[in-house]
Design a protein around this nucleic acid. Sequence first.
DNA 1: ATGTTC
Length: 470
Amino acid sequence: MELIEEAPHRFRIDPHGPMRVPGVVFASRKLLNDAEKSLEQVVNVATLPGIVGASYAMPDIHWGYGFPIGGVAATDVADGGVVSPGGVGFDISCGVRLLAADTDQKGLESALTEVMDGLDRAIPRGAGPGGVWHLTGPGQLERILRGGSRYAVGEGHGVERDLVRCEDGGAVADADVDQVSARARERGLGQVGSLGSANHFLEVQRVDEVYDETAAAAFGITVGQVCVMIHCGSRGLGHQICTDHVRLMDRAMTRYGIKVPDRQLACTPVESPEGQRYLGAMAAAANYGRANRQLLSDAARKVFHRAAGIRLSLVYDVSHNLAKIETHPVAGTRRTLCVHRKGATRAFPPGHPDLPDDLREVGQPVLIPGTMGTASYVLVGVAGGDAFSSTCHGAGRVLSRHRAARAVGGRELRARLESAGIAVRPRSLRGLAEETPEAYKDVSEVVAASEGARLCRTVARLVPLGVVKG
DNA sequence: ATGTTC
């Protein structure tokens, strides 16, 4: 694969074969070690009907289903542009929420063990069923799919301000619950308010360093402050929706004369019935994901308040696995695009009309979950950023789960983290070992490359005090 | 990511 370094942290793959646009990869040479397979996926995505600009990849690019994780692709809706479930991923609406406590680390110190034990009891996690909410019936699930965080807050599990600080005000309006299969509903019924497994987590963190005082002040965070970060998605419901609609599109694709180099890129035009059905189901999963994070926030707030009298206010909630209809300039004119972000975070610049009033001048908060025992980051969107206002989403795996678990024992890893002052509440030691920090790229390098590529600016670095894992 | 292989 020929990569042309056209600017610092920016590589181009010139169009060849059926590519409609170039590939553009934002990264350092080091981060692109062993990236050959995922770069082929960048090339494959560049062949999609209606794609505009480029097939983009963020510095945390790695191999995914059809599209690379860390991929951004926008298609022109009025020009036959397609939507592809593989461009969103299986964990629809997976995302991150950051809450800021009304105390610094000293104010938590004596209560940390009690808080962690409380979270251990209150936060459902791991594979399979279990959630903080026990639904009273299918009607309630439909209200979640339509109302997202807005419904959870309306039921008393949060405050109005939570919605202001949540992407899309806590819910998207275009959810179509009829496109959510019986099987997807069944799987979603028992998992409302749960973390799931793998790299999903709830962490108690401390703001270790602030790089941009103005943005940090607007976001409501300061050095030494305690925060809570929640990383989770739409569980089995989103997974089932992706499975269902990939199958539907795979069958329908030929009717639209679409040929893709990899079946996992199954897609149909945004304006086709199949495209609309997928987007309606995806929106329902997006709302489920937001409600999920809202209910986990509510559970965490109760623990913090009961154990330590600490209150938590929402900094922001943003997804890194979604397709959204947005307007962006393309070759000088504003176009309506379907922007796929898969393992990539929306990063609106200062002045964007969709930002809350009190954040509009500084830009959108971008939340980057790191790995256990390392760090997480808060970034901010910048003007003039490429890739349709998108940036990275996390560290990116380098070791398979199997290899990670062979590299370190769960007991040994827990001891290592505890001796580094990080309280750990894992559900399984095997699951903990699979998430050992060595299994991931250095999140600091990913963030530095993203800023170097002018996709965002670094605002703050957060370090873990306690980890709740699936 | 995922009732970790329909």
